[in-house]
Simulated scan of single mutants.
Amino acid sequence: MDRKQLIDKVDELSDAYCKGCLLKAHFRKEYGKTHAHRFCIEECTVGREIRRYGEKLG
């Protein structure tokens, strides 16, 4: 996959699953932005997939 395709895939995943995510909103409200972000990166299956694509970009 080239760079543009990777970025498009990350945007697609983010738009489809992350915007309006109830878990992220809950964790952000209860524990703060850092906890919510950490959850998304480490525990959420979509977040892990986005991170995997990001590693290919870097």
Rank of each mutant, 00 (worst) to 15 (best):
L22W: 03
L6V: 04
K4Q: 13
Y31C: 09
A16G: 14
I41S: 15
G20I: 02
L23G: 10
L13N: 00
I50N: 09
F27I: 06
K4I: 14
L6W: 02
D15A: 09
L13F: 01
G54S: 09
E55S: 09
K24G: 08
I50L: 12
M1D: 05
L22Q: 05
R52Q: 12
I41A: 15
R38W: 03
V46S: 07
C40E: 01
I41Y: 07
C21I: 04
E43L: 14
S14G: 13
E43W: 07
K9P: 00
E55K: 10
R48D: 09
S14M: 14
F39N: 05
Y17M: 02
F39M: 11
C40H: 00
I50A: 12
D11L: 05
A25I: 06
E12A: 04
L22I: 05
H37D: 11
F27A: 12
G47D: 06
T34Q: 09
E30A: 11
G58Q: 12
T45E: 12
T45P: 13
C21F: 00
L23A: 11
R3S: 13
E30F: 03
I41R: 15
E30Q: 08
D2C: 04
G32C: 01
K19P: 05
C40R: 01
E42W: 01
E30W: 06
L57N: 04
G32E: 04
Q5I: 14
K24R: 13
A36R: 02
Y17F: 05
E42G: 11
L23R: 12
R3I: 10
A36N: 03
C18G: 01
R38H: 08
I50P: 10
C40D: 01
G58P: 12
E49C: 12
C21H: 00
E55G: 05
I41Q: 13
K24L: 08
I7Q: 01
H26F: 10
K9S: 04
G32K: 03
K24I: 07
G47K: 07
A36I: 00
S14I: 14
K33G: 15
T34C: 07
H35L: 02
R52V: 08
F27D: 06
D2H: 01
L23H: 10
R38I: 00
Y17T: 02
G54W: 02
I7Y: 03
H26I: 07
R48N: 11
S14T: 15
G32Y: 00
C44E: 00
E43Y: 07
C40Q: 01
D15W: 07
R52I: 09
L23Q: 11
R48L: 11
K24A: 09
G20H: 00
G58L: 15
D11E: 03
K56M: 13
H35D: 05
R52M: 11
G20S: 05
I7M: 03
A25G: 14
R38M: 04
L13R: 01
K33L: 06
G47A: 08
E30T: 10
E43V: 09
A36H: 01
E42H: 08
H26Y: 15
R3Y: 06
T34M: 09
V10T: 00
M1Q: 05
E43P: 08
E12F: 00
V10Q: 06
G20R: 01
K33V: 02
R28C: 10
F27V: 10
K19D: 11
V10L: 03
C40S: 02
Y53I: 14
L23V: 12
G58E: 14
Y53V: 11
T34G: 10
E12W: 03
G32D: 01
